[in-house]
Design a protein around this nucleic acid. Structure first.
Lengths: 214, 214
DNA sequence: TGAAATCTAGGTCGTTTGACCTAAATCGTC
DNA sequence: GACGATTTAGGTCAAACGACCTAGATTTCA
């Protein structure tokens, strides 16, 4: 409602504006996302930008919504694609890791994490996104290891997602670069996560599990 | 030194200013860290603040240095404290998890991650911090599992640190709250990380790591 | 074709920011 | 007491920002 753009051209313009804003946010950060800056980068006048997004907050809200919507779609596409048994998890992991080589895809999330810590509205939307994310991983885990309880699968999925998000820090070029050794250990760990041999009582000090490895 | 404060009082004032700035940064975020705001919160005049930190950048630089210095000290204290064998890792983990319940301690890092993605100077300092962090964890791992090669220990340490950083997102109140189930799985995972049974192919380099999974 | 949607070009307004400056007052210590 | 360190109180300046406005031009589409 707040966002105009009833015609096809309006829709396209609206999308183009959001594209520009997204690029600006990724490149320069949240503080540099100004109406004048977006208008200039988009090659339109301030008045025209404000015709579509009357206030800065409106623009940010629309931008966030679109970003998370896209991310969710991409995620579910990946998760649902490889419909095969235990390899689905590996395939999904591979795909996720590939994304992390693209700095742009994660810089934005670093800003979102910071924003979410202070703006409840953003935190809520991010929570919803990660709920889906964890849920999808939980599904893959349960599929790969049916003997896991729902709660266990959920806990492990959350751990795996947390691991991937944290790992992005070390892989997206900011704090480090992809390291084959780390990746190999990561794959070992994920296969362990979906291994049936670790279903025992929580009190167990250390369980002996052998990881099959040729 | 660009930062004045030669006398004892000067030192105290300087610290107080940084305290205020840090609190402001944590509470309101990087964009809200203005010289006037800091001065007001600190109960001093702008001129006085600028007597100590002439420019905003100078203030931010000093703030970052102090934060990372403190974090490093806290870290090494924790890591070095429990000098006992395999329990040292568990103790350190416990301590780290305890910190994550304090939102203030991590909100700041979310801002730093975002900043580091754009300002190389900040990225460099953060890298140095995480290098120590990973190094310390690597030491604990090597100690708990002496048969690990240095490279393996390092890779696993990086994984563990990444996991903890990512987990903070789900534990610091922003995207979620501490979950006993997740923590129990986390402990299982860390004990697995320092388990000798996962050494992989005997002593050989694994260039082609085929993750075996039928 | 005509109404609605889109876009331009320019402006105003109040506010905030960082940076810089000065003149004088107080504090602390040798 | 002297002298430097600290602090106040007030100011200026240019730049940027969000929000708001108008009046007209052009395009789109039913």
């Amino acid at each position: 409602m707040s966002t105009r753009g009833a015609s096809r051209k309006g829709q396209e313009r609206s999308e183009a504006i959001l594209d520009t804003a997204e690029r600006l946010l990724v490149d320069e950060g949240h503080a540099a996302l100004t109406l004048r800056g977006v208008a200039q980068q988009a090659g339109i006048r301030l008045g025209n930008l404000q015709y579509y997004f009357a206030t800065r907050e409106e623009l940010v809200r629309a931008l966030l919504a679109r970003v998370l919507e896209r991310a969710t779609a991409k995620l579910e596409k990946r998760m649902g694609a490889a419909g095969h048994p235990t390899t689905a998890l590996d395939a999904a992991l591979e795909s996720l890791l590939e994304d992390q080589k693209e700095p742009a895809s994660y810089r934005l999330f670093y800003d979102l994490w910071a924003l979410a810590a202070r703006e409840p509205a953003i935190a809520t939307e991010l929570r919803a996104f990660y709920a889906r994310y964890v849920g999808a991983v939980e599904g893959l885990l349960s599929h790969a290891a049916p003997e896991l309880s729902r709660a266990e699968a959920h806990a492990r999925a959350e751990l795996l997602v947390a691991l991937l998000e944290g790992l992005s820090l070390f892989r997206s070029g900011t704090l480090g670069a992809p390291d084959p050794k780390v990746e190999s250990e990561l794959r070992r760990m994920t296969s362990w996560l979906s291994d049936r041999s670790s279903g025992g009582p929580p009190s167990g000090e250390r369980r002996k599990q052998q990881v099959k490895q040729t």
